[in-house]
């Protein structure tokens, strides 16, 4: 059984932590991955920094800018990830990023390298579904990589079902309108209706809720409506201006999972 399916079958209330590779320092990637998993994170989402991250708010934009200035790029990241499965033997690991750097690296080369270092799945938010279905799906399968798709309150039921059919990892429920780390709180009733509406669709994939989840209360609430939650911006904020980023990451995760 693959690591993603195994995690969802063996655990409840999963915490998926997102961090930007190369932030706060270039070589923090593997120490952060290890610290997050050892302190209780169930899934890791490693961000591949991009100059123009359209779906991200100021915190992840800022971490991406720093990471790029630190010298992060895909060849460096894959070099670091050579040691991924020594540091993190069992936890599912996803790479998240925008399509352009992947295209310049070469799609097939990228998928091959990701599989070689032990990555389980990919989140490429600006990869159009039609193109995924026609071209990428077969390539992903060939390399044993899972695709994770986003769903928003505006996504139609027909489209949710199509996304569910094309994925065999989990679905990423965007909690409301806005980019990552959003501070505008969506209407709580409308949000609850949206979470329940998706839950009632009896989809084959488990669901994680992300965007704007910043603390234990947010995590616990998300777990009422889904199989867990994704936290990114709040974790990155916890790593700002600290001497020991892995220790700060571990403290952050223990604060959520306590």
């Amino acid at each position: 059984m693959n690591r993603i399916t195994h995690a969802f079958r063996s655990k409840k209330n999963l915490l998926n932590t997102y961090f930007t590779a190369g932030y706060p320092s270039l070589h923090d990637t593997i120490p952060l991955a290890k610290a997050l998993v050892e302190s209780g994170a169930d899934i890791l989402e490693i961000g591949m920094p991009f100059s123009d991250p359209l779906a991200d708010g100021p915190v992840i934009q800022g971490s991406s800018t720093v990471a790029l200035a630190n010298g992060m790029n895909l060849p460096v990241l894959f070099e670091q990830l050579q040691n991924l499965r020594t540091a993190v033997p069992d936890a599912p690991v996803l790479l998240m990023g925008y399509l352009n750097p992947v295209l310049q690296f070469g799609v097939e080369a990228f998928l091959k390298r990701a599989a070689e270092v032990g990555v389980d799945g990919l989140i490429l938010p600006d990869l159009p579904l039609d193109e995924y279905e026609e071209t990428y799906h077969a390539l992903f399968q060939q390399h044993g990589l899972k695709a994770v798709f986003l769903i928003t309150p505006q996504t139609s039921e027909a489209r949710i079902r199509r996304l569910d059919a094309l994925s065999d990892a989990f679905l990423y429920l965007v909690s409301g309108p806005g980019t990552t780390g959003g501070t505008t709180r969506p209407d709580a009733d409308a949000q609850q209706q949206y979470f329940e509406r998706v839950a009632d669709l009896n989809l084959k994939n488990p669901r994680l809720i992300g965007f704007g989840i910043a603390n234990k209360a947010g995590f616990d609430r998300a777990c009422q409506y889904a199989d867990g939650a994704i936290i990114g911006s709040a974790l990155i904020q916890a790593l700002q201006e600290v001497d020991d980023a892995p220790a700060a990451a571990a403290r952050f995760v223990r604060g959520i999972k306590s």
Binding site: L54, A55, D126, L127, L150, T152, Q154, T155, V174, P177
Partner: peptide
């Protein structure tokens, strides 16, 4: 090439 949030 838009993220799902922009698709609708």
């Amino acid at each position: 090439f838009v993220p799902e949030m922009l698709y609708p």
